[in-house]
């Protein structure tokens, strides 16, 4: 992977884009990377469009500005495509990952973006495995898969450990979440 990877997340308040960015920071951190995970704060409440960022690097990070030319953009809510300029500043050799049931070619036309476009149906995966709509995990997996920031096997071990820790009180949900992870790795479209 490149020395420094910059990622921008688009989501809606309450949907978990911020949490997803922090989760990504956490898994990258666990593999020994230098990380930053930070939301762009405002008075936004539930439902309003929000932005969050990640910087992931093999070297110490000192820059503390927002990210204007990301390597990757992650769109957690496809309805934002119509209202937010999600591809703004996205590097030409970068990629955008969108939570949608559509295939990448269809979205690509709508987006008017020349670079790589990936899609994942986070709703379907989430509902079929976890039993409810939590787009975080599939989107996190998709960005790991597409960016190659972390080797898949390392990521799988680490995320399982963190699920076990997070769901210490309800261990029965761990396999469901792992199933969502495995399916997400397979169901990213556009590769």
């Amino acid at each position: 992977m490149a020395k420094l990877v910059e990622i921008r997340w688009h989501g809606r308040g309450g949907q978990g884009a911020k949490t997803a960015s922090l989760l990504l920071a956490e898994v990258a951190f666990n593999t020994g990377k230098y990380i930053q995970g930070f939301p762009e704060y405002g008075p936004e409440r539930m439902g309003a469009p929000i932005t969050a960022y990640n910087r992931i690097s093999d070297e110490k990070l000192t820059i503390h500005s927002n990210i204007y030319e990301p390597d990757y953009v992650v769109v957690v809510d496809e309805t934002l495509l119509k209202t937010v300029p999600v591809t703004s500043g996205l590097k030409k050799d970068g990629a955008i990952i969108i939570n949608t049931s559509k295939d990448p070619e269809t979205v690509k036309k709508e987006l008017n973006f020349e670079g790589r476009v990936y899609t994942i149906d986070a709703r379907k995966i989430s509902e079929e495995t976890i039993g409810a709509y939590y787009p975080n995990t599939p989107m996190l997996v998709a960005v790991v898969k597409v960016s190659g920031i972390i080797p898949e096997d390392v990521f799988l071990n680490d995320i399982e450990a963190s699920f076990k820790h997070k769901f210490a009180n309800k261990p029965h949900v761990v396999p469901k979440n792992m199933e969502a992870v495995v399916r997400s790795l397979q169901e990213v479209k556009g590769l």
């Binding site: 922090l22 951190f29 930053q36 930070f38 503390h64």
Partner: peptide
Amino acid sequence: ITSHAVEN
């Protein structure tokens, strides 16, 4: 910038 960003 520092208070809410997660860093190493």
